[in-house]
Design a protein around this nucleic acid. Structure first.
Lengths: 200, 200
DNA sequence: TAGGCCATGTAACCGGTTACATGATTAG
DNA sequence: CTAATCATGTAACCGGTTACATGGCCTA
């Protein structure tokens, strides 16, 4: 099955995905200037979390590259008693690249859940684990909804797109939560409560 | 805690995530034996798609390793007029590892959407692109719901967990679709139709 | 005859994460 | 005195994807 000699190297891996950290940064900076630290927060905790879960290790290099490519400009702020901040702003070139990126037809949404994997295998787990996971899952869902409520309350900005997305997210998550509360007992019931014999 | 020996010896990147292709394979094989090809289908098109989007390039090596580790066994099937199939079955050791993996508290659900990124930036796009993306998005959502309906219809198996997850997924996606249909015009309205006024 | 489905597998590559380095300020 | 928050950044690493190789059968 092997035996093929290394022939020509005409491999050009050009992924050109819509969603990567570079595009995320451009999209966020399109709405307002921000530091790398703020971008990280927005993309993990706040309502830009629908896109990419970026970490510092990917954001800072992305911002540097964007700067090199002339897509963003930097303004350094020094305040006594605070670490210095590098505030990035998008340029026309950056806006153009963002626009270009958004021309691609979006891929399918991706919903991934370790919790559902656990739920699916509920029958081989013990009651206590399931209950703990369910409680935690509930809290997470509530926190996310609360976050979106906060976003929508303090929405002084004029961007209809941002508001539409936040409302959509809140609605979907709220309905998921409602369903979850109503049906969690069915999931719990899948595991017989044999705690007495499960002494470890 | 003492801080003296900490800094140097945590150089071993032990990710130990619940969700990776290895665990996905074990979870699928926990329900029934399958080939790599089938696992790929289930994890991308069918209702195991809530977990990891795995490709052949990750599934086949994962199965080989699982075999080496004694977590699965293989039975090769030769049928005239068809490619040979390698049917994998989980072993006790495999079940044990799955159980062990599921002990970890699940991480937060992750919902990622290129479509929502587009929606958020709707105002800088042109009408035609948005409408095209919305129509496609609708189709995708409908297809996913239909898939889950199929799964639930042909559910001869006794696994309550599988059914619970499929029902949950269907419900959430259906509600998202309903909301989407009701509010898509608001999104469309964000983009002035300054292009082809005559079109419609 | 083209393309899609079945079916397995490898290797190059890459887009990220994790750990680490650094350090000031504020809240408990 | 500890932990969290603010703040930037690098390098090792890795869990995947993409492209490639192979080939037979079936349908339009």
């Amino acid at each position: 099955m092997h035996s093929l000699a290394i022939s020509r190297r005409k491999r050009q891996y050009r992924t050109r995905q819509l969603m990567n950290v570079r595009t995320l940064c451009l999209a966020i900076l399109h709405f307002s200037e921000a530091t790398g630290y703020e971008i990280k927060k927005m993309s993990t905790e706040e309502h830009f979390s629908f896109f990419v879960d970026a970490s510092f290790g990917s954001i800072y290099p992305a911002l540097s590259r964007l700067q090199d490519d002339g897509c963003v400009t930097v303004r350094e702020e020094f305040e006594s008693g605070k670490p210095s901040r590098k505030v990035y702003s998008i340029t026309d070139k950056g806006r153009q690249e963002l626009h270009e990126s958004l021309r691609v037809l979006p891929r399918r949404d991706s919903f991934k859940s370790e919790f559902l994997l656990m739920a699916m295998c509920a029958e081989i787990l013990d009651r206590e684990m399931i209950v703990r996971a369910i409680d935690r899952h509930l809290k997470d869902m509530e926190a996310e909804i609360e976050m979106l409520n906060q976003v929508l309350e303090h929405c002084d900005d004029t961007s209809g797109g941002k508001i539409w997305v936040a409302k959509f997210g809140r609605q979907v998550k709220q309905q998921a939560l409602d369903y979850f509360i109503k049906h969690r007992h069915e999931l719990e019931a899948l595991v017989p409560d044999n705690q007495a014999q499960a002494a470890e």
